[in-house]
């Protein structure tokens, strides 16, 4: 469904992406792992049109979207849960969730999805009148995911959803990612927690300073010597 070919990004003089190619197939969870500064977040931002691409193409269902506006990309079902949650602190939980559905006009569908995300995260429903800035870190992460789901994603891209969370919450985030995927949403996941990510992934890519060095099924990468040394700490 999503095909990235030779994507390049420059930040001023920094060549952050030096030609990335990757594929997301329907129904799959794909993960992208790599050291700090490898260019993982940049890849997702480039897909969303938040940073300009200097070369390459992004094909979504065969159509080149690399010149589209972020708004149209969102409308087409490509949704990014950004690194560091980025919930709107002064808005209530409910308003954050409503903003997730900003581009949608199908009231009934939005109401249904709102019910669905509150089922996924009952904690958020209890706190729907609370300002998002007063939520705990884990709750904010839940809100960030819930807000993304409100956009009716066909592909949900998550940038380090488990960052800074307690092990128990990390576990529940991963099980929710699976649940979302089973509900028919494709997932592109960036994780520092490489082991957990690869375990739930159908396919994985390993990035190093702007290029993809290794790729393979989640299972293969888990037993790959290089990956084990560099990213699984074994």
């Amino acid at each position: 469904m999503l095909e990235i070919k030779d994507l390049q990004v420059h930040y001023g003089g920094i060549h952050a992406l030096r030609g990335i190619s990757l594929n997301v197939e329907d129904g799959k969870i794909i993960s992208l792992i790599g050291a700090n500064g490898a260019g993982k977040s940049t890849t997702l931002k480039a897909i969303m049109g938040l940073v300009p691409k200097t070369a390459g193409s992004v094909l979504y269902d065969g159509k080149d979207i690399s010149q589209d506006k972020t708004r149209d990309i969102v409308k087409n079902g490509l949704i990014l849960t950004p690194e560091g949650r980025r919930v709107f602190p002064d808005l209530t939980v409910d308003e954050n969730i409503a903003l997730g559905a900003y581009t949608r006009n199908d009231r009934a569908g939005v109401a249904k999805d709102r019910k669905w995300v509150f089922e996924l995260f009952p904690r958020l429903e209890e706190r729907k009148w609370q300002a998002a800035g007063t939520l705990s870190g884990g709750e904010q992460q839940m809100l960030a995911v819930a807000r993304s789901l409100m956009g009716k994603p066909k592909l949900l891209m998550m940038d380090e959803p488990s960052l800074g969370l307690a092990p128990l919450i990390v576990k529940s985030i991963f099980s929710i990612i699976r649940e979302i995927n089973q509900a028919g949403v494709n997932v592109l996941l960036i994780e520092q927690n490489a082991k957990a990510a690869l375990e739930i992934s159908d396919y994985g890519y390993v990035m190093e300073t702007g290029v993809i060095t290794i790729s393979g099924t989640g299972k293969d990468l888990l037993v790959n010597d290089q990956v084990r040394k560099a990213y699984l700490g074994e």
């Binding site: 969303m48 938040l50 506006k69 972020t70 708004r71 919930v87 709107f88 602190p89 581009t103």
Partner: peptide
């Protein structure tokens, strides 16, 4: 509060 996050919601 946050241009980039607002953009990600599809806000122009």
């Amino acid at each position: 509060k946050d241009y980039e996050a607002a953009r990600l919601m599809g806000v122009d």
